[in-house]
């Protein structure tokens, strides 16, 4: 069974299609990157999956369960059991690192001991255990990045969605963060949907790359296939 499935999904804003007739299957444990220029609909696709937007037409399935269809959100975002890392990270500044991680676990009703254990495990994985009680503002950009990632995976989501999370980082930190994501994926094996406009990033992170143009899927392939295609087009 696929982890995520889009079936002929269309979404328009004021009559202008942002996503048009997109069909896509993401397998369990796969790292799928969605690549495209600004305004091509890649973030809209991710937000449709997260449940922040409702598709005008088409269906979205998570783990085989229908979550949205033809203008109806059948499962709200809070019930889809996904993890998400936002472009601005969206770390809650009034909570500590631990508080940020614990919020979702509390919402899902995990007992205190289990919460502690899980938070410790994840913080160790992202090498942030020493900063558990730190305030978000006290952390560096790279550390905040890792906390955002930890917050998303501590919930053991059905799929992890990342919306251009490294776009604000300098090149070195960007590279190190990519490595950290790949390492975590290797250890935990989650399904990853990663949105970016950076080809290098998309080829590095994805096992499969989806290229989007004008709201539609333009091409799907392995990083090597897509790279080759781009090289041919530029020639």
């Amino acid at each position: 069974m696929s982890a995520v499935r889009f079936e002929s999904v269309t979404k328009s804003y004021s009559g202008r299609p942002a996503v048009e007739n997109v069909s896509l299957i993401v397998e369990k444990g796969e790292r799928l990157t969605i690549l495209g220029p600004s305004g091509c609909g890649k973030t809209t696709l991710l937000r449709l999956l997260a449940g922040f937007l409702t598709p005008d037409k088409g269906s979205i399935l998570i783990d085989g369960e229908l979550v949205a269809r033809d203008g109806r959100n059948l499962r709200p975002a809070e019930e889809r059991k996904l993890g998400m890392v936002f472009q601005d990270l969206a770390l809650w500044p009034h909570l500590s690192v631990r508080g940020n991680l614990e919020f979702g676990l509390k919402a899902r009703g995990l007992p205190r001991l289990q919460r502690r254990k899980r938070i410790l495990e994840i913080l160790r994985l992202v090498q942030m255990e020493a900063s558990a009680n730190s305030r978000i503002q006290e952390l560096s950009g790279g550390q905040q990045q890792r906390v955002a990632l930890a917050r998303a995976i501590v919930l053991r989501p059905k799929a992890l969605l990342m919306d251009e999370p490294l776009s604000n980082l300098d090149y070195d930190l960007n590279l190190r963060s990519r490595e950290a994501i790949l390492r975590l994926h290797g250890e935990l094996g989650f399904t990853l949907l990663y949105v970016t406009h950076d080809r290098d990033e998309a080829f590095h992170i994805g096992t499969r790359v989806v290229v989007m143009r004008h709201g539609a899927v333009d091409r799907i392939g392995t990083p090597e296939e897509i790279r080759e295609h781009f090289q041919q087009v530029s020639l």
């Binding site: 997260a50 449940g51 975002a77 019930e79 601005d88 917050r151």
Partner: peptide, 28 residues
Amino acid sequence: PPSMEEAAQTAGAAWLRRTGFIIAPLAK
């Protein structure tokens, strides 16, 4: 930023919890 509430929503928090623990403290 809208992502603050969306992050809480993705974390599985229902509206009242999001409002009480995320939005209200941020808008204090």
